[in-house]
Design a protein around this nucleic acid. Structure first.
Length: 853
RNA sequence: GGGGAUGUGGUGGAACUGGUAGACACGCUAGGCUUAGAACCUAGUGCCGCAAGGCGUGGGGGUUCGACUCCCUCCAUCCCUACCA
């Protein structure tokens, strides 16, 4: 069965069949092995695995395989985040049902997974769009509902008046619907919210225990939760009964308040619509503006003076109340006190509308507020009796004083808002609520679960929603049995991905999770894109706490160790359609005429630059073509070799040949040899010893790189270096026993070390080379022998004023005096030092000596 | 705008704790093999310079005997910004 030339497609198929028939990767609870649960974020089944997927899943597979070799009982499952918007878009474009489209994509992608040789336990496969999965999500929602963790309230959505549908933020381009091209409207509708803010403090505290999470991810989550201490108080309004409630983190600057700003949908603003035509115009103009945080931050800050005056709680001065487009009703109380002297956004607004700017804080460097606001804390000035207090002292004193006069209260605030989980979509998990005229909003009876999605019958060019399924909506109230209507919203798809990691660890028939979950959980190593650093990872952590509090699991955090891989970026191109909306085009359709990019019909193509591979931007590089050409082992090797996992990677396939060449070299070295069965010599020559040292040193480094650093590129480089270091004579037939033994050790180590990365070729060669069935190969890792790691000499670097002027090979245990003597003998060093006196000598053991002159 | 990251030869990257910058590859150049090509093998390859030597890790400044690494500042690129997943 020995093939002469390296033929990846042939050997990969053979090895994959071997795995399949042996059920090598089925995960079973075990008492005598330590468990290791390795999970890569499951994909949205968009149709094809692109190189971003390949990178993500290869990292997870390398870690799984390495841990399995180290003797752990490894669980590595895979599944499909199958609900979501792209299926609906495909449905509208191609008149195909989302279910069918998703199913076909899954089949296609599962095939691609198999070609890549990932060691998944497919018996645990999850498809989130299957009722078997989402019925437990519905069940869990009902438990949360009964625990008071669900709230129903009004909230705004993007409404497309032409397509009569709610649009996602990414479907709104420059304030217009992506298909209709008309201005979208902001519409308030009732939606469900999960009270994640109740867990804000615990989610924040939990970050401290996540030792093996990247610190930047923890920092991002911390900033997102955004705990702050501030003062909540109210302004009285001149000539009106109402009060204006505000929250500020800087009560020390209260004497600098020269205006207040409210949201355009603040009750006070709405009151003025009838009275003040200017206000009415302003509110109307701003009503349908994009309300994403980024859009608000970028738009020009504009406002209008309402004519109303707030009464400053201390000075009793009258200060104007403005309506401003940067204040949102959905955050806090929808009103803020503005201190232009000490807040840059307020400063710019004040300059624009010629509102007075006061300085009430003095800094050490005595800056003025002539050019910009002073945002840091300092000493109070122009603040009557509070002058000369520090910001912190003034905070306490002002809070205390205001608590007597205007209900001020020191408050801890979180930036984190409750999680809106309602989506006005078809392709999602139905929210199990029934609306009854008499009883209100009642959760479905548990025995009636799952509430299945109806089959789609008519696909129109508009958005899809359960609102169209009139028959499906008809039901009876779970409470009073009278005719009632089903909720037509579905869950945010983050709902599904918030608990799939627990479901993988458990395979019950009639409940959400069983005892096996606590055996595998928490996930020991979680791998996924950095783009999920906040939302998905925060929601999953939140869900873990909810499941703990519902006594379904015992752990507090779902993911012990996290690796956030950088994105695989590729050029994205687009043209403009008749509505001047961007329409993405695939790179293969773009023709380059010098600097000009066009399609073959001559229409102009623009570039969006490097951006993450995605279905919507059509810039995903399909993995299939490359696997067909080089085989899975080469593709896996290349993806791991070309850059460290955390870094983003601009796709280019020009260097993949090198990885292919390397595997061919290994093939040529090993495929015509067999394991060394001779005697073990008692002495080794210097060259033999050098190779043994290199082998053991490499093994140590690679083990460390895999285990501690997840630095696969350097591990591969080390193995390449090791193989380059084999003297040619060792490979010849006439080689001595010692040489053959050393070569054998190098080969065995190398196959083991590369096996997690390129598993097919390594296992195949091992079976041939060892003459065994290979069953044990993937379950053991070689050990380093410290004897071969000891060094006898090292290269002493000789510096003069920090510049390298010479090198000498010296014994490892040399003293500083001896080192200095040798260094001073060095010709070049001698020459440089000849006319100067040495002021200082710095000696770093086993490294260098530096003469300062 | 805010939050988070990244920036090193022609290219991907290495340098793990402040101590030899450019490991390992790609590409390129020359040579070998070959009828020719592919594949493969050998040697060279940061920049300037004939050389001695100098310069060099996005730009500018600083700390240090010594800085890719620490500090300040500016620039560029990428991700997230609550309904893409």
């Amino acid at each position: 069965m020995n093939e002469k030339n390296y033929n990846p497609s042939l050997i990969e198929k053979k090895i994959q069949n071997f795995w399949r028939s042996n059920k090598t990767y089925k995960a079973v609870k075990s008492a005598d092995k330590e468990k290791f649960y390795c999970l890569s974020m499951f994909p949205y089944p968009s149709g094809n695995l692109h190189m971003g997927h390949v990178r993500n899943y290869t990292i997870g597979d390398v870690i799984s395989r390495f841990k399995r070799m180290q003797g752990y009982n490894v669980l590595q499952p895979m599944g499909w985040d199958a609900f979501g918007l792209p299926a609906e878009n495909a449905a509208i474009e191609n008149k195909v049902s989302p279910r069918k489209w998703t199913k076909e994509n899954i089949q296609n992608m599962r095939g691609q997974f198999d070609t890549l040789g990932f060691s998944y336990d497919w018996s645990r496969e999850i498809n989130t769009s299957s009722p078997n999965y989402y019925r437990w999500e519905q069940w869990f929602f009902i438990q949360l509902f009964k625990s008071g963790l669900v709230e129903r309230k009004e909230s705004e959505v993007n409404w497309d008046p032409v397509d009569q549908t709610v649009l996602a933020n990414e479907q709104v381009i420059d304030g217009k619907g992506w298909r209709s091209g008309v201005e979208i409207e902001r519409k308030k509708i009732n939606q469900y919210f999960l009270k994640i803010t109740k867990y804000a403090q615990e989610l924040l505290n939990g970050l401290d225990d996540l030792e093996n999470w990247p610190s930047q991810v923890k920092l991002m989550q911390k900033n997102w939760i955004g705990k702050s201490k501030g003062l909540n108080f109210s302004f009285e309004i001149d000539k009106r009964d109402e009060i204006l409630e505000v929250f500020t983190t800087r009560p020390d600057t209260i004497f600098g308040t020269t205006y207040c700003a409210i949201a355009s949908d603040h009750p006070l603003a709405i009151d003025l619509i009838e009275i003040n035509p200017e206000v009415k115009k302003f509110i109307k103009q701003n009503k349908n503006k994009n309300k994403t945080e980024a859009a608000i931050a970028k738009q020009e800050k504009i406002g209008i003076n309402t004519g109303l005056k707030a009464i400053h709680p201390i000075t009793k001065e009258l200060i104007p109340i403005w309506i401003a487009n940067f204040v949102l009703m959905e955050y806090g109380s929808g009103a803020v006190m503005c201190v232009p002297g000490h807040d840059q956004r307020d400063y710019e607004f004040a300059k624009k509308y010629e509102i007075p700017i006061l300085q009430v804080i003095k800094t050490k460097d005595n800056r003025t507020i002539e050019k910009e606001a002073i945002e840091e804390k300092g000493i109070l000035i122009n603040s009557s009796s509070y002058n000369d207090l520090s910001s912190d002292e003034a905070f306490e004193k002002i809070a205390k004083d205001l608590s007597r006069t205007c209900d001020a209260e020191i408050q801890t605030n979180y930036r984190l808002r409750d999680w809106g989980i309602s989506r006005q979509r078809y392709w999602g998990c139905p929210i199990p609520i029934v609306h009854c005229d008499d009883c209100g909003h009642i959760p479905v009876n548990e025995k009636d679960l799952p509430i299945e999605l109806p089959e789609i019958d008519d696909i129109t060019s508009k958005g899809l929603s359960l609102k169209g399924f009139k028959e499906w909506q008809k039901t009876n109230c779970p409470n009073c049995s009278k005719p009632a209507k089903r909720e037509t919203d579905t869950f945010d798809t983050f709902f599904e991905s918030s608990w799939y990691s627990a479901r993988f660890a458990s395979q019950p028939n009639n409940c959400m999770l069983d005892d096996e979950a606590d055996y595998w959980l928490p996930v020991d190593h979680y791998i996924g894109g950095i783009e999920h650093a906040i939302l998905h990872l925060l929601y999953a952590r939140f869900f873990n706490l909810l499941m703990r509090d519902q006594k379904l699991i015992t752990s507090t955090e779902p993911f012990k160790k996290l690796l956030t891989q950088g994105m695989v970026l590729a050029d994205a191109f687009y043209t403009l359609d008749k509505n001047s909306n961007p329409e993405w085009v695939h790179k293969d359709k773009v023709i380059k005429n010098g600097e000009q990019l066009t399609l073959n019909d001559g229409s102009k193509v623009m570039t969006d630059g490097m951006s993450k591979m995605s279905k919507s931007k059509l810039n995903g590089i399909d993995s299939k073509v490359i696997i067909d050409k080089y085989g899975a082992d080469t593709v896996r090797l290349y993806m791991m070799f070309t850059s460290p996992p955390e870094q983003s990677l601009e796709w280019s396939d020009t260097a993949i040949e090198g990885s292919y060449r390397f595997l061919k070299r290994i093939w040529n070295l090993i495929s015509n040899r067999s394991i060394y069965k001779g005697t073990i010599p008692s002495n080794f020559s210097d060259a033999e010893l050098a190779l043994r040292q290199k082998s053991h040193k490499t093994l140590k480094k690679v083990t460390h790189d895999f285990d501690e650093r997840n630095s696969f590129n350097t591990a591969i480089a080390a193995v390449m270096e090791l193989l380059n270091a084999i003297p040619d004579s060792f490979k010849e037939n006439k080689a001595t026993d010692g040489e053959k033994l050393c070569l054998d050790e190098t080969i065995q180590f190398s196959l083991k070390m590369l096996s997690p990365i390129s598993p097919h070729i390594c296992l195949y060669l091992w079976k041939e080379y060892s003459g065994t069935d290979g069953n044990d190969f993937e379950f053991s890792w070689p050990e380093t022998n410290e004897k071969f790691l000891k060094l006898e000499n090292f290269q002493l670097i000789i510096q003069v004023n920090g510049k390298v002027r010479g090198r000498e090979n010296v014994p490892i245990d040399i003293t500083q005096e001896e080192a200095q003597e040798i260094a001073l003998q060095n010709k070049n060093v001698k020459k440089i030092l000849s006319n100067s006196s040495i002021k200082k000598v710095i000696y770093v053991k086993k490294k260098l000596i530096n003469f300062v002159i």
